[in-house]
């Protein structure tokens, strides 16, 4: 396995309030995030995603477990100095301008004072706030605050970036920008841990995912390996009025649109199906491993996990 930029082992958090029953928010979560990858952290509300991130960043005291970022204990302040963090729904002192806020966070993060103005200009431009540098944050929309949150997380060129719901409050263009930004970061070797409800976003950018449910890990691994359906292949073919009978006999989930046939079949039938389409004069546009959507996978996984817990 490549170097782990982030390592969470046996994370556990039990909230205890005097006079009330103890509440377990995270029972046993382990996450390994390889350097230079984008790792998705998924789960329904209350699964323990944000609590896990907060423990990783020293905002919540863990009941148990170890938390490391770049080999250092991240529950200690010194272990977080190479980390950029975007909290869910970030808030800022509203009487500052965007530029002042960046200067504040830059100086806290140890960015050289002479470099802060230059980095501020570049990062605000990168997140689409170039025109709002001198605007007071009280006049910022929800989406603008989110963009500023991303910009401050990237101050100081962190080697690890942790983003909690980065697309929250953003319009579709903003969401696309965030996706592109994450891919850019990965290309530069930055490790990204992304917690998100937006499954399409996770599916589009993540290399690995960890899915949490009820405070523990329900599934983890390479996103392609998780979503590919074992033993089945998807085919897209065209230039045929109808599918040949040999294909119809093995194909499932057949759909046609604009002259393009789409269906799945057992992988071992691939050779026979390709030959049949050739003989029928059709053209094969694509043959790929059949892949579930992350939405379907996620829903099925949670349903199965809930049944396991119930039984």
């Amino acid at each position: 396995m490549a170097d782990a930029a982030i390592s969470v082992q046996g994370a556990r958090k039990v909230y205890s309030t005097p006079g009330k029953p103890k509440r377990t928010a995270v029972s046993n979560v382990s996450i390994q995030v390889e350097s230079g990858t984008i790792h998705g952290l998924l789960g329904p509300n209350g699964a323990g995603k944000t609590t896990t991130l907060k423990m990783l960043l020293g905002l919540v005291r863990p009941t148990g477990g170890t938390f490391e970022v770049l080999g250092m204990d991240s529950t200690r302040p010194s272990g977080r100095r190479r980390v950029g963090f975007l909290p869910e729904q970030p808030y800022f002192p509203v009487n500052l301008t965007a530029r002042q806020a960046m200067r504040f966070y830059g100086s806290l993060g140890g960015v050289d004072a002479a470099r802060i103005p230059e980095r501020t200009t570049a990062l605000l431009a990168r997140v689409g706030l170039a025109d709002a540098e001198r605007t007071e944050l009280s006049k910022f929309s929800r989406g603008m605050l989110q963009r500023l949150g991303i910009a401050q997380a990237l101050l100081g060129d962190p080697e690890v970036v942790i983003l909690d719901e980065p697309a929250s409050g953003l319009d579709p263009v903003g969401q696309r920008d965030v996706r592109n930004l994450m891919l850019e970061l990965r290309d530069r070797g930055v490790t990204v841990l992304l917690s998100s409800h937006q499954l399409s976003e996770v599916e589009a950018v993540c290399d690995q995912v960890t899915i949490l449910n009820r405070g523990s890990v329900a599934a983890e691994g390479d996103i392609n390996a998780l979503l590919n359906v074992d033993g089945r292949t998807s085919v897209r073919a065209m230039n045929m009025a109808e599918l040949p009978p040999q294909v119809v006999s093995v194909a499932e989930e057949i759909a046609v649109s604009g002259g393009m046939w789409v269906f799945s079949m057992p992988t071992e039938q691939t050779r026979a199906v390709v030959d049949a389409i050739d003989e029928a004069g059709g053209t094969i546009a694509a043959i790929t491993p059949k892949r579930e959507s992350l939405d379907d996978y996620f829903a099925a996984l949670l349903a199965a996990h809930t049944e396991d817990v119930a039984s």
């Binding site: 905002l59 808030y91 966070y105 993060g109 140890g110």
Partner: peptide, 9 residues
């Protein structure tokens, strides 16, 4: 707002 502060180390 303290999150952004403490997360900076």
């Amino acid at each position: 707002t303290v999150y952004n502060v403490l997360a900076k180390g």
